[in-house]
Amino acid sequence: MLKLHNISKQFDDKVVLSDISVEIQTGEIVSLLGQSGSGKTTLLNIILGLTHMNSGKITFNEDDISHVSMKERGFNIVFQDYALFPHLNAYQNITYGWKRKKGLVTEREIQEYIEFLELEPHLNKKIDKLSGGQKQRVALARTLVTKPKVLLLDEPMSALDGVIKESIKERIRSIAKQFKLTTIIVTHDPEEALTLSDKILIIDNGSISQYGTPQEIIHQPSNPFVEEFILKQLQIKRQNIFELFGEQNV
Rank of each mutant, 00 (worst) to 15 (best):
R100N: 04
K101F: 09
K101G: 02
K101A: 11
L104H: 10
L104Y: 03
V105Y: 00
T106F: 11
E107I: 11
E109K: 02
E109D: 04
I110Y: 01
Q111M: 14
Q111I: 07
E112Q: 15
Y113W: 09
I114H: 12
F116A: 00
L117P: 08
L119Y: 09
L119Q: 10
E120D: 07
E120Y: 07
P121Y: 08
P121E: 08
H122D: 13
H122G: 10
L123K: 06
L123R: 07
K125R: 15
K125E: 14
K125C: 13
K125H: 14
I127N: 04
K129V: 10
L130F: 04
L130P: 02
L130G: 09
L130I: 07
S131T: 14
S131D: 15
S131K: 14
G132I: 12
G132T: 10
Q134N: 01
Q136Y: 01
V138H: 04
V138K: 01
L140C: 00
L140E: 07
L140F: 05
L140R: 06
A141I: 00
R142C: 05
R142L: 09
T143S: 00
L144A: 02
V145E: 04
K147L: 04
K147D: 08
P148S: 13
P148E: 05
K149D: 11
K149M: 03
L152Q: 09
L153N: 10
L153H: 09
D154S: 13
D154Y: 12
S158V: 13
S158A: 15
A159I: 05
L160G: 10
L160H: 14
D161M: 04
G162W: 03
G162H: 08
G162R: 10
V163H: 14
K165C: 03
